[in-house]
Amino acid sequence: MSDPHDRQFLEITRRQVLEAGTIVAVSGMLPVAAQAQASSSQLAPENGVTVQVRFQINGQPSVLEIDARASLLDMLRERLGLVGAKKGCDHGQCGACTVHIDGRRVASCLTLAAKIDGRDVTTIEGVGSADTLHPMQQAFIDHDALQCGYCTPGQIMAAIACVKEGHASTPEEIREYMSGNICRCGAYVGIVAAIEQAAPQIERG
C-alpha cells in the first residue's frame, strides 16, 4: 500500500467499480419494472420446462407448477412468499437458507425444488407463532443471539435440528454441528448459549 503506484491503481479500480456498480443498479431495475407489469396477471409464468410438485409446507398440502431449474429457496421466497429463509451465498456455504425436509435440516439453495415432490418441508414460518414462540426462538432473544438478524432464521432451523439429532450435548459439539451457519455479526457466543438453554426444553417436548 505504501507504493504510490499501488495507491493510484487502487483508486482507478475503485472508480471503475463504482461506475460498473451504477450500471448494474440501473440495469437491475429495468427487468424488475418489466416483471412488475407482467405479474399483474396473477402467477408469474415460469419460462423454462416446468414440473408439478405436491408437498406439505408447514403442515399444509400444496401443489405448484415450477421451473425444473428452480431452487427450493427461490420457490419458497418467490412463489410461496415465505421469505424467512434467506439467500446469503446461494451456494450452500452460509446456512442462511436452512429449512427442514422430512424433519432433517438442508440447504434450500442447493435443493432442486423438483426434489420436494412428496416431501414435508418446514420453514421458520412453521415453528412457533407470534404469540407462542418456539423455545429456540425465545432462547435466541434471551441470549441476544443475533445482531442484524439476517442469518437468524437459518440459525434457528439448524439449531432445532441440531438438538433433535442429539448433537447439542456440549458447547464444543454445538459449535461443530452448527459450523454450517455463518454469522458475520459474530453472535456465536450468544447462539451457543441459546442452544444450551433451549436443548433440554426441546428434548423434554
Binding site: T98, R104, R105, V106, L110, A158, C162, H167, Y177, G180
Partner: peptide, 9 residues
C-alpha cells in the same frame, strides 16, 4: 466433511 445440512443431502 461439509456441514450437517449438506451431509443430510
Amino acid at each position: 466433511a461439509a456441514s450437517q445440512q449438506l451431509r443430510n443431502m
